[in-house]
């Protein structure tokens, strides 16, 4: 390969890399903080943790709880879904929705449990 070709290839590679990283910023990262969610008029996804002991089941298909986002801000969340059983064991919780006044109203909730590629305890500690 000629030297010129190599330079062109390296430049193309660099252009691709920066292009992806920059365009990716908006497209690739759906998760925002409560502060950003407040500014945005559209439904957004907020990632954080459920604060233990704050859940209140309203009926079979809605509940409320407090969630702390990654900046450490705690906000009351009203969720129009059935309460996930493992909400407080979750390593992170993602709520999708928007602010209605001071309350974040979510119509979708994702729960990620800590997972380790280790065998489950045979003693039956496992919770369903």
């Amino acid at each position: 390969m000629k030297r010129y070709d190599k330079i062109v290839l390296v430049l193309l590679f660099a252009a691709f890399a920066t292009g992806i990283i920059f365009t990716a910023r908006g497209a690739m990262s759906p998760y925002v903080t409560f502060a950003e969610a407040r500014k945005s008029g559209r439904p957004v996804q907020v990632k954080g943790c459920a604060v233990a002991g704050t859940a209140e089941e309203i009926d079979n298909n809605s509940f409320s709880f407090h969630m702390q986002d990654e900046n450490g801000e705690t906000v009351p969340v009203f969720a129009r879904v059935k309460m996930p059983a493992n909400l407080f064991e979750a390593e992170s919780v993602v709520v999708t929705g928007r602010f209605e006044g001071d309350v974040f109203t979510a119509n979708k909730i994702l729960v990620k449990c800590p997972s380790k590629y280790e065998a489950e305890h045979p003693s039956g500690v496992k919770k369903e």
Partner: peptide
């Protein structure tokens, strides 16, 4: 293969 901690039976899909 044992079931996975946290993921249970679904861990097998790995």
């Amino acid at each position: 293969m044992p079931a996975t901690q946290g993921l249970g039976q679904t861990g097998r899909i790995i």
